[in-house]
């Protein structure tokens, strides 16, 4: 396997990895279980959930009673919806994946070592350019 073949394989792999992440967020997210998660279930022990006109309310003695609403609870993508529409979870998921990719990819591109002394020669430069092209 030569360098170029390896890098071409790398690009294909990165594309697939991104596609899988988008698929999970856009499609598989609709299959997610909406039951309370582990932490919420434990912190709700001792309380009863009472449905009210605007959501649900906890009564009794439990850890979760002291929980307050998120400061951004009214924001457009709150709770992985789009403007409160949970049928749009997939769209919210795609946006989340892209924002995360942009932030993380950007940070790591800035942090990475420009090029190590041994790979700085002109013979390896085209290969380096090739691999850096996979970032976009």
């Amino acid at each position: 396997m030569n360098d170029t073949a390896q890098q071409r394989g790398g690009r294909t792999f990165f594309v697939w990895f991104g596609v899988v992440a988008l698929f999970v967020a856009a499609v598989v997210s609709y299959l997610a279980d909406s039951s309370p998660d582990g932490l919420e279930a434990v912190t709700r022990q001792g309380c009863e959930t009472v449905p009210t006109s605007n959501g649900e309310r906890l009564t009794g003695e439990c850890i979760a009673r002291s929980g307050t609403e998120h400061a951004f609870a009214g924001s457009p993508l709150a709770d992985y919806t789009v403007l409160g529409n949970s049928g749009m979870t997939g769209v919210a998921g795609i946006l989340g994946v892209l924002v995360t990719l942009l932030l993380a990819g950007g940070l790591f591109a800035l942090l990475r070592e420009p090029s190590r002394p041994t790979s700085g020669s002109s013979t390896t430069a085209p290969g380096d350019d090739d691999s850096s092209g996979t970032r976009r």
């Binding site: 992440a21 999970v24 967020a25 598989v28 992985y80 990719l101 790591f108 090029s115 996979t134």
Partner: peptide, 22 residues
């Protein structure tokens, strides 16, 4: 480096996606 930086960005994006799946 040039190889691990894009991988790390994708790993973060994948973790975001996977965390949506309860």
């Amino acid at each position: 480096d040039d190889r691990t930086a894009p991988m790390a960005g994708l790993v973060a994006a994948f973790v975001f996606a996977a965390q949506m799946i309860n």
